[in-house]
Amino acid sequence: MHDILVNTARFDSWSRDAQYGVRLAALVQAAVTGVYVYPSPLYATPEFGTPDVIETLTDMSRILEASALGAREAFVDWAASLGVGQASWMVAQGNLADALAQIACWHDLLVLERDDDRTWSKPEDIAGLVLQVGVPCVVVPPRPVGGVSLARIAIAWNGAPEVVRAVHAALPLLQRAEEVLLVRGLPREPHHDVVWKPPFDIDGYLLRHGIQPRSQDLTTTGQEVGEALLEHARRFDADLLVMGAFGRSRFSEWVLGGATRHVLWHASLPVLLHH
């Protein structure tokens, strides 16, 4: 894992996603990019705004842009003080989701914060990124960020392609863990045209990469799966939960599956998701 992207909602202080992402980059010796996105003044312009109103909003946007660009040195110095050798700072004007989806393509991991009151007003907002961005995302819960540890990592496993991609993306983190817990749920139904003989062996795959997990069966089904996953992670005292982001497209919306939605919105630990 070489390049970590962190979104920050402000630049006069650093939000939780920036704090976690920079500390994670220092831990795994990765480069980090901080990104601040602000809306176009046209987005804030009233439908029947006068020229004076439009000019005022445009001037405010220019001031904000200049201040944001001026935060580059502060971000790089702050990252260096936490042990990150390579840090960069980007500013974008436009829609937050669109901007992050574009710049994430250059990175191995995107770190976001779950913010009930500000950036993400409902699960579907962050789901649009997790399901479309194309890179694994770590979602940081709304609690203070102290140190970042990868000593104990839990994996929510059911054999689905989304989980395989999440585990593959998390390998550099899993290899640093002292203990890994594999929470085995009921297998997803395979594609009706493809039957693998023998089935994919997750234990053998992890062992080839130097990871020997403990196993715990998850017999819960239905709406309780997400709650049960978080309970297993809590009992294991996990520092990170790795899972697939299950969802589907409904017209222009991305809709999360029930377990993913529950974990995303109720987790008290960082969650690495991949679609």
Rank of each mutant, 00 (worst) to 15 (best):
A31W: 11
H2F: 04
H266Q: 07
Q216R: 09
E113Y: 14
I103Q: 08
M60W: 14
R118K: 14
V32E: 01
A92I: 10
P199F: 00
L181R: 04
R10S: 14
D12K: 08
V145I: 15
Y43K: 14
Q86C: 10
H209Q: 12
E253I: 13
A267K: 02
W106G: 02
D115N: 00
W120F: 15
L264Y: 05
S13P: 11
A245I: 11
V32H: 00
G210M: 11
R16A: 13
A9K: 09
L174T: 01
G21C: 03
T56L: 00
P41Q: 06
L273P: 01
L150F: 15
D201H: 04
A26I: 13
V148S: 08
E178M: 07
P199D: 11
L206A: 06
V148K: 05
D17H: 14
D108Y: 10
W196G: 12
S149G: 06
V135F: 06
L57W: 07
V76W: 04
A169M: 02
G147I: 11
A79E: 06
V76L: 08
V28R: 02
L109C: 03
L207C: 13
P172C: 00
Q93K: 12
D52I: 13
A97C: 06
L82Q: 11
V263A: 01
E253N: 09
V255G: 03
L256P: 07
S15N: 03
L96V: 13
L230H: 15
S40T: 13
T119Y: 09
G244D: 04
A31C: 03
R234L: 11
S67E: 13
G159A: 11
Y43N: 13
D125G: 05
V32R: 00
G49P: 00
G85H: 10
Q223F: 12
H191L: 11
D12M: 05
I103F: 03
A166H: 04
G257N: 00
G83K: 11
A156R: 03
T50C: 04
C137V: 15
V164C: 14
L264K: 04
A160W: 10
L5A: 05
A177R: 05
L112G: 08
A87F: 05
R143A: 09
F200A: 09
A92R: 10
S252M: 15
T50Q: 01
V130T: 04
Q93V: 14
A127L: 05
P41I: 09
G70Y: 00
V163A: 05
A30P: 12
L57F: 03
P172W: 10
V225M: 06
G159Y: 07
Y20H: 15
A104L: 03
E253S: 15
L230V: 14
A80N: 00
D217I: 12
L112D: 08
V194S: 08
H209S: 09
A166K: 03
S15W: 07
D125L: 05
M90Y: 15
G204T: 10
